[in-house]
Amino acid sequence: MDTRIQVFETEKIKNEIGEEKEVNTVLCIPWAKVVEIAGGEETEGKILHRIQRNFIIRWRGEINQKSNQLKLDYQGRIYFVSHVKQIGRREFLELQTFVNE
Rank of each mutant, 00 (worst) to 15 (best):
D2N: 15
T3H: 00
R4T: 09
I5N: 04
Q6C: 13
V7I: 00
V7D: 00
V7K: 00
E9H: 14
E9M: 15
T10W: 01
E11N: 02
E11S: 02
K12T: 15
K14R: 15
G18S: 15
E20N: 08
K21M: 08
K21P: 00
N24R: 02
V26Y: 01
V26L: 01
V26W: 00
L27Q: 00
L27K: 01
L27Y: 01
L27I: 02
C28Q: 13
W31G: 06
A32D: 02
E36Q: 08
T43W: 11
T43C: 08
T43R: 12
E44C: 06
E44G: 07
K46S: 13
I47Y: 06
H49W: 07
I51S: 10
I51F: 10
N54P: 06
N54G: 09
N54T: 07
F55A: 02
I56S: 12
I56R: 13
I57W: 05
W59C: 05
E62Q: 12
I63C: 10
N64Y: 13
K66Q: 01
S67K: 04
S67A: 07
N68H: 10
Q69H: 03
L70V: 07
L72N: 07
L72I: 10
Y74L: 06
Y74F: 13
Q75A: 05
Q75G: 01
G76R: 03
G76E: 02
R77S: 07
R77H: 04
R77V: 11
I78A: 01
I78F: 03
Y79K: 00
F80W: 04
F80L: 04
V81Q: 02
V81C: 02
V81H: 03
S82E: 12
S82Q: 13
S82V: 12
S82K: 08
K85Q: 14
Q86Y: 01
Q86C: 03
I87S: 09
I87K: 11
G88S: 03
R89G: 15
R89T: 15
R89N: 15
R89L: 15
R90Q: 11
R90N: 11
E91P: 03
E91W: 05
E91A: 09
F92W: 12
L93R: 05
E94V: 05
Q96N: 14
Q96Y: 09
F98D: 10
F98K: 10
F98S: 14
V99Y: 13
N100A: 05
N100C: 05
E101Y: 09
